[in-house]
């Protein structure tokens, strides 16, 4: 299980489209061997097919696909966008934090989602992730987030 570890966080990233943002979050998972290329492709297809419902809160998108699309290890990556981009969500647009979720069918998937939910349930953590300029700052927020609740 890899939850927002250093190598799967990227800050101040420029993207041209929502698809591009999804690909960037997916590529972080891909380069560490956490998912297969087919999974990244499926993340993009899920957006094209089902729309931007995974923009779960203002500024926050959590693109993902199904475990059978090619997940090797349960993981969450983060791409913080340089400029907010619209995903077409009626209420929560525009997006600046993209969490790439590698959804596994193991029990770790649940643990991972619980960590992510605990982190993002606190508006202060979200604010810190939006403001962060270094990976160390992001990791500090994540560690603090794990201690609350």
């Amino acid at each position: 299980m890899k939850f927002l570890e250093k190598t799967i966080i990227q800050l101040d990233v420029e993207v041209k489209s929502p698809e591009d943002a999804i690909m960037k979050a997916g590529q972080l998972l891909l380069k560490d061997g956490l998912v297969e290329p087919s999974y990244v492709e499926a993340m993009k297809q899920a957006y094209n097919k089902n729309g931007p419902y995974f923009v779960l809160a203002p500024q926050i998108a959590i693109p993902h696909a199904r475990p059978e699309d090619g997940v090797n290890e349960a993981a969450v990556s983060l791409v913080q966008l340089k400029e907010a981009i619209s995903f077409g969500h009626a209420i929560n647009d525009p997006v600046r934090l993209v969490f790439g979720l590698g959804a596994s069918s193991s029990a770790e998937h649940l643990t991972l989602l619980r960590k992510l939910t605990t982190l993002l349930n606190d508006p202060q953590n979200i604010e810190q992730l939006l403001q962060a300029t270094t990976i160390d700052e992001v990791q500090k927020t994540i560690r603090n987030g794990e201690m609350t609740r």
Binding site: F54, L56, I62, H64, R66, L101, H109, L110, L113, L116
Partner: peptide
């Protein structure tokens, strides 16, 4: 949409 990720977050 997929029943894997976001619906589980909402469930929690």
């Amino acid at each position: 949409g997929l029943g894997q990720g976001t619906s589980l977050i909402l469930k929690m």
